[in-house]
Design a protein around this nucleic acid. Structure first.
Length: 261
DNA sequence: AGTAGATCCTGGCGGC
DNA sequence: TGCCGCCAGGATCTAC
């Protein structure tokens, strides 16, 4: 579930709660979440290091340290950072805990264990190795967006979600963007005319920015957003019709068949 | 080239 | 009440 806006909010949280702190000790409670690195190597790389800056690319978060390695975080479906003061209890699904010298802590919490932590010497190389496309909000301009999608022969929804094409959009926000742009999730990408693609690009930027500005709290989102209504008895906030649910390339897509053509 | 389907993963929920 | 199976969905892999 953590998509681009969620990860950006996580990033800001880490900035304000953990930046500048020095790691005194690292507890790897579940080595399963470490992406192909041993717990020893992971601890050795980051113990004694200070957190210097953060950066987000799509759904990935990079934390720069004063050592040679960046910490890379991906949150899967249920991952989140949790910030501890010395009095706080460890959350239930703590997988890795960074204890800082001032007594505070940063927990990588992840219920379903689909998220991962890595280390990398270079975010650019990491992005390249993972074949991630440009960040949907900060890197993808209209020309690139047009180029990527106007030649796609497949369905629009999975194209928006494909991280190799553009990075950051998942199931929830692809539905929202398509709804705002009034595009049916099952339309072919190369079938959309220039104007519709423009609408889609504009909706993408507007939705992502709004979600970040509202701190990804659904109750603070505009009423006109699909996000607040995607449930079995949900109605379209625009026309009032019952929302439809369909499997589109293996994912549940919510949409309004009246508004989205 | 693109999609479908299985897999990984856990917990909540519907159905019987 | 108790248990089974389904579903959520991000990413990755295989098969077509």
């Amino acid at each position: 579930m953590p998509e681009l806006p969620d990860v950006d909010v996580f990033r800001k949280g880490i900035e304000s709660k953990s930046l500048g702190r020095t790691i005194r000790r690292i507890e790897v409670k579940d080595r399963h979440v470490l992406g192909g690195i041993s717990a020893q190597r992971f601890r050795r790389s980051f113990t004694g290091r200070r957190l210097l800056s953060t950066r987000r690319h799509g759904k990935h978060l990079f934390v720069e340290t004063d050592g040679p390695d960046y910490l890379v975080m991906h949150f899967g479906m249920t991952g989140e950072p949790v910030y501890l003061t010395d009095a706080d209890e460890t959350p239930r699904h703590a997988r890795v805990i960074f204890h800082f010298e001032d007594g505070s802590g940063l927990v990588y919490n992840c219920q379903r264990r689909l998220g991962r932590l890595w280390l990398t010497g270079s975010p650019e190389k990491f992005i390249e190795q993972k074949h991630l496309g440009p960040d949907a909000l900060t890197e993808l301009d209209w020309e690139q967006f047009h180029e990527v999608l106007s030649s796609r022969r497949g369905t629009i929804k999975p194209a928006l979600m494909q991280q190799e094409l553009l990075a950051g959009i998942g199931n929830i926000y692809s539905d929202e963007i398509l709804f705002q742009a009034k595009v049916h999730p099952q339309r072919r990408a190369d079938d959309l005319d220039e104007t519709t693609l423009r609408d889609l690009y504009r909706a993408m930027r507007q939705v992502l920015k709004t979600a970040i500005a509202r701190n990804v709290q659904a109750e603070r989102f505009p009423r006109s957003y699909l996000l607040r209504h995607r449930s079995d008895r949900g109605r379209c906030p625009r026309c009032g019709a019952a929302l439809q649910k369909a499997k589109v390339s293996g994912r549940t897509a919510w949409f309004c068949s009246n508004c989205q053509s």
